[in-house]
Each structure stands twice: as C-alpha cells, then as structure tokens.
Design a protein around this nucleic acid. Structure first.
Lengths: 184, 184
DNA sequence: ACCTGAACACCGTTCAAGT
DNA sequence: ACCTGAACACCGTTCAAGT
C-alpha cells in the first residue's frame, strides 16, 4: 500500500517521542518507513513543513478552553495544558517554538491562547504581545527544566536545587505574568 | 603566526554577523581562517563551546547595571540593553538562548539580570524563575520580530501590521512582567 | 605545541528515470 | 501518481602523521 502524508507525520512524531529532535532526520524517517529519502518529498514539501505538522500533532489533544470559566482561570489552565503537552516529549518545546516561528497562526491552541488573553481584559492591540510572553514562558521553562535534568544526569554534584523546585519555576513565572495582566 | 582561540572566536562572530547561524559551520570557519577543519579542535573542544563563547561576545558590551538607580528602572534598562545587543545580529537571540541552555551561568549580563530581579524585591527562591521570564521575553520577542521581517520580505501581502507596531510588542510584554513584579 | 590529510558517519534536497 | 537510484553539496568530529 502506498505511503501517505499521514503516515509520514505519524512516524515522525514517533521518532521524536522515542529519540528526540537530533534523530528526526529525513533520512532516518525514510529508513523507518522503508522508502528512499526522496519519496518523502512527494508527501511533504521539506523538513520545515514536516516539523510544523509534527508540532500540530503534539498540541492536538489540548482541549478548547471552557468559555464558562473565569478568564484568568481558563488562561492558567490553558498554559498548563500547553506545558503538559510538550513536557514529556524530548525537544517538544523546541519543535513547537520552531513551528510557531516558521508559521505563526498555524497552531490552534496558540490562537486560543491569544483569545484567552483577550477575555482576560487585554485590549486587542496588545493581545498577541502578551500571548507571546505566556507562550515563551511555557516553552522556555520546559527547555530549562529538561536541560537541568541533563545537567543532573551528567554531573551528580549538581544536586544543589532539586527537581521539584525546578518544576515550580513555571508556576512562579506564570503567576507574575497573570498578576501583571491584572495591573496593566 | 599560529592560530589562537581568540582568533577563532572573533572570526566566528564575524561570520554570524555577516551571514547568520546557518553559515556558521566549523568547516566554513576553517575556510575563512585558511586552516583545515581539524585545526579548530585544538583551540575549541567542539561547536557548542564555540557558540557559548560567541554568545558571550555578543553580550560583552552590555554595561553593568547602575546600583544607584531605582531597581525597576535599572531592570528595564538592562532588558533593553540585552535586546539591543542581540537585535542587530542575525540569529543573535538563538545563539544566546542556546548558550544559556547549554551552560547557564556562563553569561555575565544574565547573572546581573537575576541580581536586578532580586533588587526589585523578588525573594531569593524565586529570582531565577522571574529572571528567566524576562530573558525568554527578550529573546523570544527578538526572534518573532526577525521572523516577521522575513515574512514581510517574502510575502508583500503581509503588510497588515507594520514594522513599528511589531517592535512595540517588546515594550508591552516587558511592562506586563514589571507590573507583575510589583504585585506578587 | 600546533596543524594537515584523510577518513567516518552522517545531513537535506533534487530529479531523471522507472512502474 | 508515486517511488527509486544516484547524485550534489554539504555537515561535525577524530586521529595518525607530520613539523
């Protein structure tokens, strides 16, 4: 049976989940699918387009924000959902950041984030700016957390601040931004 | 006269300034220095280490924060200085983000940022978390700005929001974070 | 001490030619 | 329509051997 775009993207997500971004190469992906590398370019324009699709998949399970909840609460929940979607996939945050950079507006949950910021009272002109702050915080804190994990594995002296404290970083930062929203 | 680590790093910065990160390869760097690629590995352990050094150079001109200024004012000025240092170098924000990820604590102005957050009244336990929010905002907004410039060049229809408005994104986000600091 | 030559094990992408 | 084979133009890194 013929290869499909669907199949290409699914296998790409699989490689990412299992081995991380460094192993997600077009050639490796072709090997996994038992086709020649050139075959992929029938289903996908290039690697960038593939990564945008992969990022979409990572965030696909995030639920639409509940319109009946208080705006700020829904915003916090959405930020947590974004974080969780990306936290357990190696280099997941980088892939989403890349996709957002390459093709902003292509990620449904990011668009929802912008609308939530609006519901929280931020005027239309400033919504995207504030949503970017939240998004950068989510993605940045996940990356920092992963790197700290690596540092911990590599260098056992690096036990100064333990893993639980590291994870709390996210909450603190999110609270600062939410407090800022109330004041501006 | 023999090659030196100094010379290697300086030329790397040069290539980055002129052609961006995609062109900053070990082989290209060797060509520019008129040596074999292997020669670089006498002066530098690997590409990661080189990029950490390059990031340090990009931020080297940032002045130490003025201890006599009000904390919040000094913090805002420092954030602006970080932004300016990185804004005019193609992929400068990515290089700094990478260096910070690979070797946190290696960038003097980032350490100063943490101390400024402390001076602004954030308790020691939460200083790093908040400093990361500011740093991610600075680097993230520069990346977004650059990508928007590219989109503008590529697709003239993308004139919806003009360049000046795009640059203001940074100010809005920074104000939200500063307001958050006052409230938490 | 410092560098070259040559290799190893890879990349992303294109494209004529096949089915 | 969909894929292969083969090429093009690259990567980062290592290391024996030279000076």
């Amino acid at each position: 049976m013929a290869l499909s775009r669907e199949q290409v993207v699914t296998t790409a997500v699989d490689i990412l989940r299992r081995y991380g971004l460094a192993d997600l190469t077009m050639r490796r992906l072709a090997r996994e699918l038992e086709v020649a590398p050139g075959a992929l370019y029938w289903h996908v324009a290039n690697k960038q387009e593939l990564l945008v699709e992969v990022a979409g998949r990572l965030l696909a399970a995030i639920p639409e924000p509940d319109p009946d909840r208080p705006a700020e609460e829904a915003l916090a929940a959405h930020a947590h959902a974004l974080r969780e979607a990306v936290r357990h996939v190696p280099d997941g945050a980088d892939v989403v950041a890349l996709a957002h950079a390459v093709d902003p507006g292509s990620l449904r949950p990011v668009e929802e984030l912008v609308r939530l910021v609006g519901r929280a009272g931020v005027p239309a002109r400033e919504r995207e700016a504030v949503a970017e702050v939240v998004l950068h915080h989510v993605l940045g804190s996940v990356t920092t957390e992963h790197n700290q994990r690596i540092a911990l594995d590599l260098d056992p002296d690096f036990r100064a601040r333990d893993a639980a404290a590291v994870a709390k970083t996210f909450e603190v930062g999110l609270e600062v931004v939410l407090a800022g929203l109330r004041r501006v």
